[in-house]
Amino acid sequence: MLSRTAASLYWLGRYVERADFVARLVEATIRLDALSPRPAGEAAWASALSVTYSDDGFAATGAETAAMEVARFLTLDPANPGSIVACLDAARNNAKAVRTALTRDAWTAINRAWLIFNGRGKPATTMETLTLVEAVKAETRGFEGAIHWMMRNQATWFIRLGAAIERADNTARLLDVKYHLLLPKGERVGGTVDRDQWTTILQTVSAVTAYRWLYSEGLKPALVIDLLTTRFELPRSLAGCIEETVEVMTLLGKRTGLHGEADRMARARLAAMQRTRSGDVIVRGLHEYLTAFIRENGLLHAAIARQFRFS
């Protein structure tokens, strides 16, 4: 496979995943905002910006941290590289470049998601924003479905690899930001706002039901952290993403006969994760743990790019 093709497929996977994540984040933030009394609602949007690393970008627009402004910035602003529309645009450009490696269904899903935004004005109401993100989620689900039914070949694996690396990054950032930035002054840990915030996190990663199945106790931050870090059962947990990465790299290795730096790094991470207990993580400091995780994820990304000669 051409290096350019592999790189485009990998980035296609990353951008679709990113678009999907931002859509979920916006949806969850709208819910949180609705539940929270001021100024907690604004804090919710501020943290959504932090999670997507776009607080500086938003500040540069000069707009107030008001719900509709942030929602527009995160969904429809083409100048914000982290917005859904920018991610879908990047995804579609990568898809176009490897059109023949995709099935018609996979291409159509990307194209339809992109068309949702084409020529659309900014949403005027929360309801419109919700409709928009719902539509994006539907198309990215359609894309995942189409990938699932594509031939089990290198093309699918590179898309899945990109998605897994991106997902790991997103979950880690979501957890990190919520854990540190969210609770407004005067709010009690374990209070209503705190509970709503943890629920929001679960919703963002589609883990509300999973939480109920896995834990008989009520909502506890330590358990949410446990679920999102070390539980292999949850596809969006750090452990789930690491395992997916190793699985896909193994499939690629079998097909290409190549085994390199990125394989070794991914396996070492999996071995480390199998030994990790969430309780220890909390004791030693979640923020420190997540910071290291995000850095390692970046290193793995770079190793993948080197191993498959992306540039």
Binding site: S3, T256, Q307, R309
Partner: peptide
């Protein structure tokens, strides 16, 4: 961009 010429030979850049 997928092709490079080196030593008067054309190569294509693949993942391998």
């Amino acid at each position: 961009a997928d092709l490079v010429v080196d030593d008067d030979v054309v190569w294509m850049r693949t993942i391998g």
